[in-house]
Structure formats: C-alpha cells, structure tokens
Lab assay of single mutants.
Amino acid sequence: KNAAQIVDEALNQGITLFVADNRLQYETSRDNIPEELLNEWKYYRQDLIDFLQQLD
C-alpha cells in the first residue's frame, strides 16, 4: 500500500487525514475509527506525513 491509497481509503470512509505541527491528524464525523485503519496510519505515519505535506 502507499500513502495515496491510505488517504483515499480514509476519505471513502468519511475521514480526512492532514498534518498539523508535523503530526498526522484526522477529522471525521464518525463515532469511531476502525482499529485496522488506526494501525495502518501508525505503521505508515511518516509516509503519510510526507505525502500530505507535498500536497500543501
């Protein structure tokens, strides 16, 4: 998997990933985040941060 796929997957589930103060953050109206997504975000944290910062 790559960062773009993970960001896309999150968006499809109503979750927006973004970077604030060099930390990976998310916004969602969901009550909870599936644990497998959280684990994936932790595992790919630096890739996601790098990818999202390139988009800014």
Rank of each mutant, 00 (worst) to 15 (best):
1 K>C: 05
1 K>T: 04
1 K>L: 04
1 K>F: 05
1 K>V: 04
1 K>I: 04
2 N>L: 11
2 N>I: 08
2 N>H: 10
2 N>W: 07
3 A>T: 04
3 A>R: 02
3 A>F: 03
3 A>G: 04
3 A>S: 04
3 A>I: 10
4 A>L: 06
4 A>G: 07
4 A>R: 14
4 A>K: 14
4 A>N: 06
5 Q>F: 05
5 Q>H: 05
5 Q>C: 08
5 Q>A: 08
5 Q>L: 10
5 Q>N: 06
6 I>L: 11
6 I>R: 02
6 I>G: 00
6 I>Y: 02
6 I>W: 02
7 V>R: 04
7 V>N: 03
7 V>H: 04
8 D>H: 15
8 D>I: 14
8 D>N: 14
8 D>C: 15
8 D>G: 12
8 D>S: 14
8 D>R: 15
9 E>H: 07
9 E>Y: 08
9 E>R: 08
10 A>R: 00
10 A>M: 04
10 A>E: 01
10 A>G: 03
10 A>H: 02
10 A>K: 00
11 L>E: 07
11 L>P: 01
11 L>D: 04
11 L>Q: 07
11 L>F: 12
11 L>S: 09
12 N>C: 12
12 N>F: 11
12 N>T: 11
12 N>V: 13
12 N>S: 15
12 N>G: 11
12 N>H: 13
12 N>L: 14
12 N>E: 15
12 N>Y: 10
12 N>M: 14
13 Q>V: 08
13 Q>K: 10
13 Q>N: 10
13 Q>H: 13
13 Q>Y: 13
13 Q>S: 08
13 Q>W: 13
14 G>P: 01
14 G>D: 05
14 G>A: 04
14 G>H: 06
14 G>N: 06
14 G>M: 05
14 G>I: 02
14 G>Y: 04
14 G>C: 10
15 I>T: 02
15 I>E: 01
15 I>K: 01
15 I>H: 03
16 T>C: 15
16 T>V: 14
16 T>D: 05
16 T>I: 15
16 T>K: 15
16 T>E: 08
16 T>M: 11
17 L>C: 06
17 L>F: 05
17 L>I: 06
17 L>V: 03
17 L>S: 02
17 L>K: 00
17 L>D: 02
18 F>G: 05
18 F>P: 02
18 F>N: 04
18 F>Y: 12
18 F>S: 08
18 F>A: 05
19 V>K: 01
19 V>N: 02
19 V>A: 05
20 A>V: 15
20 A>T: 12
20 A>S: 12
20 A>K: 15
20 A>Y: 10
20 A>G: 08
20 A>C: 15
21 D>W: 05
21 D>A: 06
21 D>E: 09
21 D>I: 04
21 D>C: 13
22 N>A: 08
22 N>H: 07
22 N>G: 15
22 N>V: 05
22 N>P: 01
22 N>E: 08
23 R>M: 15
23 R>W: 08
23 R>P: 01
23 R>I: 15
23 R>L: 14
24 L>D: 00
24 L>F: 04
24 L>M: 03
24 L>K: 00
24 L>E: 01
24 L>R: 00
24 L>T: 01
25 Q>M: 15
25 Q>I: 08
25 Q>P: 01
25 Q>V: 10
25 Q>H: 13
26 Y>S: 03
26 Y>E: 01
26 Y>C: 09
27 E>R: 15
27 E>M: 13
27 E>W: 14
27 E>Y: 15
27 E>C: 15
27 E>L: 13
27 E>K: 14
28 T>M: 03
28 T>N: 04
28 T>I: 03
28 T>C: 06
28 T>R: 03
28 T>V: 04
28 T>L: 03
29 S>Q: 12
29 S>A: 11
29 S>D: 13
29 S>L: 13
29 S>N: 12
29 S>E: 14
29 S>R: 10
30 R>K: 08
30 R>W: 06
30 R>F: 06
30 R>D: 07
30 R>P: 03
30 R>S: 08
31 D>R: 09
31 D>Q: 12
31 D>E: 12
31 D>T: 13
31 D>H: 10
31 D>K: 12
31 D>I: 10
31 D>M: 10
31 D>V: 11
31 D>P: 11
31 D>F: 07
32 N>T: 13
32 N>F: 14
32 N>E: 13
32 N>L: 09
32 N>P: 13
32 N>V: 13
32 N>W: 14
32 N>I: 13
33 I>G: 01
33 I>S: 01
33 I>H: 02
33 I>Y: 02
33 I>C: 02
33 I>N: 02
33 I>V: 13
34 P>H: 04
34 P>Q: 05
34 P>L: 04
34 P>F: 04
34 P>T: 09
35 E>I: 11
35 E>D: 10
35 E>P: 11
35 E>T: 10
35 E>G: 07
35 E>H: 07
35 E>Y: 08
35 E>R: 08
36 E>I: 09
36 E>T: 10
36 E>A: 12
36 E>D: 10
36 E>N: 10
37 L>N: 03
37 L>P: 01
37 L>H: 02
37 L>K: 03
37 L>T: 05
38 L>N: 03
38 L>V: 08
38 L>Y: 07
38 L>C: 09
38 L>R: 06
38 L>W: 07
38 L>Q: 06
38 L>F: 08
39 N>C: 09
39 N>M: 12
39 N>G: 07
39 N>F: 11
39 N>W: 10
39 N>K: 12
39 N>I: 12
39 N>A: 13
39 N>R: 11
40 E>A: 06
40 E>Y: 05
40 E>M: 08
40 E>H: 04
40 E>N: 04
40 E>R: 05
40 E>D: 12
41 W>C: 02
41 W>R: 00
41 W>E: 01
41 W>F: 10
42 K>A: 15
42 K>V: 12
42 K>R: 13
42 K>Q: 14
43 Y>P: 03
43 Y>S: 10
43 Y>H: 10
43 Y>N: 11
43 Y>M: 14
43 Y>R: 12
43 Y>F: 11
44 Y>S: 04
44 Y>H: 08
44 Y>W: 07
44 Y>N: 05
44 Y>L: 03
44 Y>P: 01
44 Y>V: 02
45 R>P: 01
45 R>F: 12
45 R>S: 14
45 R>A: 15
45 R>E: 15
45 R>K: 12
45 R>Y: 15
45 R>T: 13
46 Q>S: 07
46 Q>G: 06
46 Q>T: 08
46 Q>C: 09
46 Q>W: 07
47 D>R: 08
47 D>F: 07
47 D>T: 13
47 D>H: 08
47 D>N: 10
47 D>P: 07
47 D>S: 12
47 D>I: 14
48 L>R: 00
48 L>I: 13
48 L>P: 00
48 L>D: 00
48 L>C: 00
48 L>K: 00
48 L>N: 00
48 L>Y: 00
48 L>W: 00
48 L>V: 05
49 I>R: 03
49 I>E: 04
49 I>D: 01
49 I>P: 00
50 D>S: 10
50 D>C: 09
50 D>A: 13
50 D>E: 13
51 F>E: 02
51 F>Y: 15
51 F>N: 01
51 F>P: 00
51 F>T: 02
51 F>I: 03
52 L>H: 00
52 L>R: 00
52 L>G: 00
52 L>M: 04
52 L>Y: 02
52 L>A: 01
52 L>W: 02
52 L>D: 00
52 L>I: 06
53 Q>T: 15
53 Q>F: 07
53 Q>Y: 09
53 Q>P: 03
53 Q>S: 14
53 Q>R: 12
53 Q>A: 10
53 Q>E: 11
54 Q>M: 11
54 Q>S: 11
54 Q>K: 14
54 Q>A: 12
54 Q>L: 11
54 Q>E: 11
54 Q>G: 12
54 Q>P: 09
54 Q>W: 09
55 L>E: 09
55 L>D: 08
55 L>W: 10
55 L>R: 14
55 L>T: 11
56 D>M: 13
56 D>A: 13
56 D>W: 05
56 D>T: 12
56 D>E: 13
56 D>I: 12
56 D>N: 13
